[in-house]
Structure formats: structure tokens, C-alpha cells
């Protein structure tokens, strides 16, 4: 029989946050959003740094798969925070492509280039209408679905 022990520890977080004082939840969220918005310029700078790294690593993608994945993941995690959600979605799609490459042991260079091209385009989202951006991302998903089907 397998061993299983249950514990019911004191929830210190609950005790701390329920002490009198503090802020209304609504106010706390609003204040936090204000501080995040103030950092938007820095956030975009970080994305651009990560993108530069992505394009550099992509030149030797097969041998730099893990580093490339890490850099793309950085873009995926940050872009939505500073109004570049579609770029983030494209980066997430590239994460999936690199994940597929890890599973199969082979990176499809054409699909990689398609993703890099789309990321370059979506870095300037104002150049496209919402419908166009949505269409671009839909086609990118089709690229990933094709790769997934090949893996199965």
C-alpha cells in the first residue's frame, strides 16, 4: 500500500491579508496597473532586446535550440503586458514549433522563417488591421497544426 500523509498547516497568507487595513481589492488592482503602465517603455525595450537575441540565435537554430526557446519564451511572456499581444501570440506559436523540433529532433527551417517573419511584422501592429493580424495568426496556427500532425 502506498504511503500518504495529509497535513493541514496554518494558512499564514490568509491570516496576513485578512488583518484590518490594506486596500480595497479594486484599488489595489488599479494601483498595480498604474505602476505596470508606467513601466511600458522599459517593457518594450526588453522585448526588443529579446527579439534581437531571437533573430541572432535563429541563424544557428538547430544547435541553439534551447537558448532560442528561452529567448522566444521571454518575448511570449512579456509582449502582452505592453500592448503587443499579437507579437506575443506569434512568439508562443514559435515556442510550440521549437517544442515540436525538440520532440522530433529536427527543426523545420521554413516554418522557423515564417515565424520570424511574422514576428517582425507584428512588432509594428499598427501597420495592420485587427482582421489582418488575426488572419496572420490563424495561418501561423495552421503551420503548427501541420507540424503536430506530422509528429503524430
Amino acid at each position: 500500500m502506498s504511503h500518504a500523509v495529509f497535513y493541514e498547516p496554518e494558512n499564514r497568507l490568509a491570516k496576513a491579508i485578512n488583518t484590518p487595513g490594506g486596500k480595497h481589492v479594486e484599488t489595489a488592482i488599479f494601483d498595480a496597473e498604474e505602476l505596470v503602465v508606467q513601466a511600458a517603455d522599459e517593457c518594450v525595450e526588453q522585448i526588443d532586446l529579446a527579439l534581437t537575441q531571437v533573430y541572432r540565435l535563429a541563424e544557428h537554430a538547430q544547435s541553439q535550440l534551447d537558448a532560442l526557446y528561452k529567448a522566444v519564451r521571454e518575448v511570449a511572456g512579456l509582449a502582452g503586458t505592453c500592448g503587443l499581444g499579437d507579437l506575443g501570440a506569434a512568439a508562443l506559436s514559435l515556442c510550440n514549433l521549437l517544442d515540436q523540433a525538440h520532440q522530433s529532433g529536427r527543426l523545420n527551417a521554413e516554418r522557423l522563417q515564417v515565424h520570424l517573419g511574422v514576428m517582425r511584422l507584428l512588432r509594428r501592429p499598427d501597420r495592420f488591421s485587427e482582421t489582418e493580424r488575426s488572419e496572420i495568426l490563424k495561418n501561423l496556427q495552421a503551420v503548427i497544426d501541420k507540424g503536430q500532425a506530422e509528429l503524430a
Binding site: 496576513a16 491579508i17 484590518p20 487595513g21 490594506g22 486596500k23 480595497h24 481589492v25 489595489a28
Partner: peptide, 17 residues
């Protein structure tokens, strides 16, 4: 996020956490 996402009057005190 301009709208109030929580729709609650609850308070939270993270000062001591």
C-alpha cells in the same frame, strides 16, 4: 484594464505578508 475586474468591496492587506 479600465474596468473594475473584481467587482468586489473586499479588502486585502499585504503589508504584513
Amino acid at each position: 484594464n479600465a474596468k473594475d475586474p473584481s467587482k468586489t468591496k473586499a479588502r486585502i492587506n499585504l503589508e504584513r505578508a
